[in-house]
Design a protein around this nucleic acid. Structure first.
Length: 572
RNA sequence: CGGAGCGUAGCGCAGCCUGGUAGCGCACCACAAUGGGGUUGUGGGGGUCGGGAGUUCGAAUCUCCCCGCUCCGACCA
């Protein structure tokens, strides 16, 4: 490709509303343009990168025996009503109607469509196991789109769905997808981590997320550096540390008129924060015989909403009670709540169950109890894992101490089981002629998000530094002062042709620009290999080679093609 | 969804308070010089000032309504 025939529009200035570096660089390099909130056009330059990522994903999925197909992005409401997700998916689902008033959704995922497809096509165990996948545009009406294509509403996703006669087969295939995903991210040269995860709205039991590690990541991951343990904080089990010490203080009711928060309590009464307890009031589920439930975590800990929602007595989604509701149910305001004489049921975190001589609200405005001890002052309520893990906690598998890091979720695999095949009555005959609901797995990769995640991990102050497998061009030829120098122009043309013939994606910057502009553009758009051709080098028969983000050297003209063939061979 | 802010040329912004010819930088076009790190000069094109209504002799500017976009928050009691 010659720059003069390409659409290269770079910007020097940082766009005002781009927060993170990948968003800024994608805009400055001219890879994407925003059409409306969370919806982006991919320019020819950006699309080249997207296609390269796609291709790696496609090759590895094919290698694992999966079959590519393409499903519609517009899906009829009836399909979603069959599984109940027309309602359950909530406002994330973009709904629309046709001229006759029939309702549709723009697909945010395709479990319903693939299951509908399978119930029509897959009838016999002899067809199993089978895995279909597609690379397709999805739409999720995110509450707050941000960070460019990182959290966009419209995005490109690879989604795959497997069907199995039994859970064992599903488990084996899931392992294959796990290694396939690992290989994909290795090939893309991304620094990533696989973590156990909550399966969220998609449903199912076993699930792993693949995260590209970056400080700008929206997810928190708990891992043990010296072991393989890694889990999303949403899901990581919090293990209580130590044993309950014997009581040493007497229970006493203290006036705390100005203490409305844990921080106040710590500051005004010199209570160590590890000796305080927070009482959070949440709505109860329909099956509970109460309207509200109190959840207790240690003062310096955070309630984990996902864990809380899993309690049968707690309403899902989690809803915190309003101050008004709290006053009505308990007779005191938030800030003065605690387990003693609490008129509503209460569940305590594992760590809280091990506390002694602790303080908490007295359920009387402006009063707290200090020196509280379980069993002595009140019976120990139901104990559960309710909190987020924190750095320094022991890992649930006993393999060491947890550290928290940030990640960008780029892949997610699930064992769904028969949730969808049952809901939609997809039936396959087994060997004995009995109809069974096949076990399913589902496997997603955020293709467009990978592009942004790669930039978060690979950039410098000059711009993007693409991992070679996803670079828009492998090599750029930069002729210095080609307008005036015949031999520069001729050698540039010649090398351009030869590199192309050698099978490389090569860009020839044939614009009549100052060298500085050409260098700056080549660096901004992150092309891995730069060849600089100028009269200065030609006097001694060399061209200058520079590795983006690395070292430069001079290479004799006649060795260039051979050298690049080596580069290419090393990559394959 | 709650709070805040912003919409003026492709991008970044000034002008608005105090109503009176719509500006600056970058980008773009032309010419010239320059020619190994975003060079310089001269000339030029480009605007329903987000939309509508109102006040006024006169509105980018004041008032009201609508739309769009961005940021913060949406669990800590």
């Amino acid at each position: 490709m010659k720059t003069s025939a390409f659409h290269l529009v770079t910007q020097r200035e940082v766009p005002a509303d781009a927060e993170i570096v990948s968003h800024q660089l994608m805009l400055r390099a001219g890879m994407i343009r925003k059409l409306t909130s969370g919806v982006y056009t991919w320019t020819p330059l950006g699309l080249r990168v997207l296609r390269k990522v796609e291709q790696v994903v496609r090759e590895e999925m094919d290698a694992a025996g999966c079959l590519e197909m393409l499903m519609p992005s517009v899906q009829p409401a009836e399909l979603w009503q069959e599984t109940g997700r027309w309602e359950d998916f909530g406002p994330l689902l973009l709904k629309m109607a046709d001229r006759a008033g029939r309702e549709f959704a723009f697909g945010p995922t395709h479990e319903e469509v693939i299951t509908d497809f399978a119930r029509g096509e897959v009838r016999s165990y002899k067809q199993l196991p089978i895995c279909f996948y597609q690379i397709q545009t999805k739409f999720r009406d995110e509450i707050r789109p941000r960070f460019g294509v990182m959290r966009a509403r419209e995005f490109l996703m690879k989604d795959g769905y497997s069907f199995h006669l039994d859970d064992d087969c599903l488990g084996r295939f899931y392992q294959l997808m796990y290694t396939t995903y690992s290989r994909i991210f290795e090939r893309l040269q991304l620094h990533f981590k696989a973590v156990t995860a909550d399966s969220g709205a998609i449903g199912g039991a076993v699930s792993h997320e693949f995260h590209v590690l970056a400080d700008s990541g929206e997810d928190l991951i708990a891992h043990v550096p010296e072991s393989s343990y890694a889990a999303n904080v949403e899901q990581a089990e919090a293990v209580a540390q130590g044993e309950r010490a014997a009581a040493t203080e007497a229970l006493r009711l203290v006036d705390t008129p100005n203490a409305r928060s844990i921080a106040d309590l710590v500051e005004q009464f010199q209570q160590p924060i590890e000796k305080t307890v927070k009482t959070l009031v949440v709505a109860a589920s329909d099956e509970a015989d109460t309207d509200f439930i109190a959840l207790l975590v240690r003062g310096d800990h955070e309630l984990n909403a996902i864990k809380a929602e899993k309690l049968p007595a707690v309403a899902a989604p989690l809803r915190m009670a309003s101050e008004e509701e709290i006053r009505k149910a308990i007779g005191a305001g938030p800030g003065s709540l605690g387990p003693i004489k609490l008129p509503i049921p209460c569940v305590v975190d594992r760590q809280v169950a091990l506390m002694s001589d602790f303080s908490a609200g007295a359920n009387i405005d402006g009063k707290h109890y200090f020196g509280i001890n379980w069993e002595r002052d009140l019976p120990l309520p139901e104990v559960c894992d309710l909190r987020n893990v924190v750095s320094g906690d022991p890992a649930a598998d006993g393999s060491g101490t947890l550290e928290l890091i940030r990640g960008i979720e780029v892949g997610h695999i699930f064992q769904l089981g028969s949730k969808y095949s049952e809901a939609m009555n997809a039936v396959v005959m087994d060997e004995s002629g009995r109809g069974i609901h096949p076990a399913m797995g589902c496997y997603g990769i955020g293709v467009s998000r990978i592009v942004a995640a790669a930039i978060e991990q690979n950039h410098d102050d000059k711009g993007i530094i693409w991992p070679e497998p996803m670079a828009p061009f492998d090599v750029v030829v930069l002729p210095m002062n080609a307008k005036k120098s015949h031999r520069v122009r001729e050698l540039a043309d010649q090398l351009y042709g030869q590199l192309k013939s050698a099978g490389l994606d090569v860009l020839l910057d044939d614009r009549p620009l100052r060298p500085g502009v050409m260098f700056a553009d080549a660096e901004l758009i992150g092309i891995p290999h730069h060849l600089i051709i100028g009269d200065r080098g030609l006097d001694t028969g060399v061209v200058e080679y520079r590795r983006r983000g690395g070292e430069g050297r001079e290479i004799p003209v006649e060795e260039i093609i051979g050298w690049f063939e080596q580069v290419k061979a090393a990559r394959a």
